[in-house]
Design a protein around this nucleic acid. Structure first.
Length: 580
RNA sequence: GACCCUGUAGCUCAGCAGGAUAGAGCAACUGCCUCCUAAGCAGUAGGUCGGAGGUUCAAAUCCUCUCAGGGUCGCCA
């Protein structure tokens, strides 16, 4: 058992969420009936959730036992189901080789609600992270390039993972490894000196710089000499050439200003914005170290670390300037020294998988044991018309414009549906950006996503606004019903549609853990949809505020839902408006 | 050519530590606001789980082959 815990009503830490513990207890009950031949962990492993509600809440398949017992699964299930009993079990049924149990709803409901209402936003918090540092490298846009939809993925996934890690007891360090170094800046400087104009750039820096960058690549097709010039200017930059440095600084400052605005809109902050240039003076020692360790060899004029069964990792170019890998090595070592991380995540597109494999392999080769804690968290591309968006060709969709449009649409909806809402602007911002964030996070990381403004700005169905709306509904009920937090909640929850809500609430801690283990925020996103759906169904079938007898216990459930939805949204980096 | 990822409903996707009738959401069609926010709920329709073998009591899920799309494979990041 790991140190996975949640707060219990009496503030003690209990292992696992209620759902997990029930599974353990059920496994224990079965084991007792199996005369000790079967390991409890194995049994727990076998227990599953029935596909349909009428089959109960937990199921134990008996097919594997058939050989050992020399009986049919059906018979085993029937025998077992007659012997099984426990306080948390209401009813047991044997159906075609399965032992299906129906939980004691009253008991579980009371427990789960008590747990949530006592823990509040700490519900689902785990401590297995033990305060250890986890660095999360994400977003990392390139300066002098616009913040495109392509960067959204890394940004929102990384941000959410940091929050989830924190929820699991880690101490996350959010790092924005700004792309402010590399041959591209040589190219940009070349382009600016040839065609640039100071006034125009000052007016609209990013737009103009992008134009120059695109122009460079167009002209370079005709005139390959430009590439050489670009490399030369980067060399000068690395050597501290005055004009190069001053242009670079200017481009960088303008870009950071723009990025800052985006992060404000998304509600994201970083603990470090040390970009690639920050490691400029730390690379010499890296190269020396590699040389000292004897892993560096010369090949075709460049310096590389060779591998078996994998292409070599280039450390130094023919002209002596450094590469991406060199800087990432320097950064990794620096971060280990500065933060002493136990884990270090890189939320970077899957097209860079080889790079990270090489990076980790180099570290292993020179004996850095902490390399064990490092992981590349890859994700698929944002596609436009089935193709990769390319900055060079100027075919990008700007995140800022999408966010603006989303907020505008949200405002339109508010004016339409709730025109007297106070703080309209703020709510529209939360809903609009929430829609964009959620649209990205609900997809499994590794899948490519086709950019569709239409999908992103849909506020119905499995969307961010749907969750937020559900949260607002719950909040409204609590206000209208004058829910009293301190009041004793009875468990007279006869409404059958409340049960799926409780089952869902109970799973939250396990979802968080799974989501962290797989570095996959989409599990939280999907979970939150499921909870919202269950709640909306409940809402539609029960008049929550009508019966004075039941109102407080019903509102306890509503409040539990509100707490979990809000916390789930927070973990995704989204706001949960009280009204919308 | 080698390696990696992906292929499930018209579209976008869940499900993939093997398990009971393959699920949502959009779009289409039907209902539900004198009633707690209709950004909602209920229902209808829609599927050879890319294809072929294999392992297994059981395969969308694991293995092999195959087809299709994408990515990566030395001086970009």
């Amino acid at each position: 058992m790991g140190a996975f815990c949640v707060f219990a009503p009496n503030n003690q830490m209990i292992e696992g969420g209620r759902g997990m513990r029930i599974k353990e207890e059920f496994a224990h009950v079965i084991k007792q009936q199996l005369e000790g031949q079967w390991d409890r962990r194995k049994i727990e492993w076998m227990i599953e959730k029935p596909k349909h509600e009428h089959m109960g809440d937990l199921a134990f398949p008996c097919f594997e036992l058939a050989k050992a017992f020399r009986k049919s699964p059906k018979m085993i299930a029937e025998e077992l189901s007659e012997k099984i009993s426990a306080s948390f079990i209401e009813k047991v049924e044997a159906i075609g080789g399965y032992v299906n149990v129906f939980l004691n709803r009253e008991m579980i409901t009371t427990e789960v609600m008590a747990e949530i209402l006592a823990a509040q936003e700490n519900y689902g918090k785990a401590i297995f992270g033990n305060g250890k540092v986890i660095t999360v490298d994400f977003s990392s846009p390139n300066i002098a390039k616009p913040f495109s939809m392509g960067h959204l993925r890394s940004t929102v996934i990384g941000h959410s993972l940091s929050l989830i890690a924190e929820k699991c007891g880690y101490n996350p360090v959010k790092i924005n490894h700004i792309g402010d170094w590399g041959t591209q800046f040589g190219k940009l400087i070349t382009a600016y000196r040839l065609w640039g104009d100071e006034e125009t750039v000052k007016k609209e820096p990013i737009k103009e710089l992008l134009k120059l960058y695109v122009q460079f690549h167009e002209e370079a097709k005709e005139n390959p000499d430009l590439e050489e010039q670009g490399r030369n200017w980067f060399k000068k930059l690395e050597e501290g050439h005055e004009e190069a440095i001053s242009l670079w600084t200017w481009f960088r400052d303008e870009s950071l200003k723009e990025f800052g605005k985006i992060y404000d809109k998304l509600g994201i902050t970083f603990d470090s914005q040390a970009g690639e240039a920050f490691y400029n003076d730390k690379m010499k020692r890296v190269v020396e170290l590699l040389e000292y360790k004897g892993v560096l060899v010369e090949s075709e004029g460049a310096k590389v670390v060779p591998f078996e069964g994998m292409p070599p990792c280039l450390i130094k170019k023919r002209d002596g300037s450094t590469l991406y890998a060199t800087r990432d090595l320097a950064a990794a070592m620096y971060r280990q020294k500065k933060y002493g991380f136990a884990k270090s995540l890189y939320v970077v597109g899957s097209e860079q998988s080889l790079h990270f494999k090489q990076l980790f392999a180099v570290l292993r080769k020179i004996g850095c044991e902490w390399e064990q804690g490092m992981a590349h968290v890859p994700f698929g591309m944002m596609l436009k018309d089935g193709k990769k968006m390319s900055t060079r060709k100027g075919k990008v969709v700007l995140l800022d414009e999408v966010l603006e449009e989303a907020v505008y649409q949200a405002m339109k909806n508010i004016n339409d549906k709730n025109p007297h809402l106070e703080d309209k602007e703020e709510v529209a911002r939360h809903v609009g950006t929430g829609a964009v964030i959620f649209h990205d996070l609900k997809h499994f990381r590794l899948h490519d996503v086709e950019f569709s403004l239409e999908d992103m700005l849909t506020f119905e169905g499995e969307t961010g606004p749907y969750i937020q709306y559900t949260h607002a509904r719950a909040s409204s009920l609590l206000r209208k019903g004058r829910f009293n937090d301190s009041q004793q909640y009875t468990s007279a929850m006869e409404d059958s549609s409340a049960w799926p809500v409780v089952v869902s609430l109970m799973q939250f801690p396990d979802v968080i853990k799974r989501s962290f283990d797989a570095y996959d925020p989409s599990q939280v996103a999907k979970y939150v949809v499921e909870l919202a759906r269950a709640f909306n169904h409940y809402y539609g079938s029960v008049r929550i505020l009508d019966d004075p007898e039941q109102i407080q216990s019903r509102l306890s459930l509503v409040h539990s839902v509100k707490i979990v939805l809000k916390e789930g949204l927070r973990l995704l980096g989204m706001e949960a408006p009280e009204k919308m």
